[in-house]
Design a protein around this nucleic acid. Structure first.
Lengths: 118, 118
DNA sequence: GTATGGGTTCACGCCAGCGTGAAGGTCAAG
DNA sequence: CTTGACCTTCACGCTGGCGTGAACCCATAC
């Protein structure tokens, strides 16, 4: 299938699909006229990519571990290898830190709005 | 006082102080040799700026409302004018949205790590 | 022929508060 | 005179997943 069709099937823009290819996440074949030719399996692959991106993983990390992705009836998950485990743990800590920072920022904002009682 | 002294007093880098000036948050005098000459009151002013930045306000917003800032025994707060109220409310909503998105991202990450039970 | 509606490869824009040299004046001290 | 520690003004780098043209090729219907 061509890029626009995959875009519609997955809900991901054609620009994003080309971007994923630049990042080494997809490797569609090319037909005689130079157009990208995607396989049926790429629909699943794109869904996995989107799931991983929406979980906060960067494209470089995804590129290294995309082959660990498995999709079942209850969504996408990753088969663990030690390096991947460490990487995801580090990400989890980063997200937790961001959450804490965001909460602090939010409460500082409240402090600005409500004058200190006196 | 010169920029390095203000930097030490406030704990803010000289680069940041120049940046605040670019953004219209500070307007130090210049002495004969072209060096920035800061007033004592700028120490308080910088503290107010830092408080507002750490609460998520952007420099352009700070520039418009810095004169509303009051510093008392219990920290910096802002005297409210209607426009400012609206601006801060919008910011609060944005922060809440970011928090929600961050929580969602975090739980998606957990979903990737723990394979679905079957 | 041509008007469309694809497809292609660059390559800059975004959001924002600074970090970090680069190249060069100022000035007190040795 | 010469360090050397300050100061000055540019101006690019960072973080990153795309949006958004720009300029151009392909293919089909009219």
């Amino acid at each position: 299938m061509l890029i626009s069709e995959l875009a519609e099937l997955t809900g991901v823009s054609a620009r994003a699909l080309r971007h994923y290819e630049e990042r080494g996440l997809l490797a569609p074949a090319r037909n005689s006229n130079g157009y990208r030719e995607y396989a049926e399996s790429d629909v699943t692959r794109v869904a996995q990519i989107r799931t991983m991106i929406s979980a906060g993983l960067g494209t470089s990390t995804i590129q290294r571990y995309l082959d660990c992705a498995r999709t079942g009836d209850h969504g996408t998950f990753l088969e663990m290898c030690p390096d991947l485990r460490a990487e995801l743990d580090a990400l989890a800590r980063r997200l937790d830190a961001e959450q804490a920072e965001l909460r602090a920022k939010r409460s500082r904002l409240d402090g600005l709005v409500s004058p200190p009682l006196r």
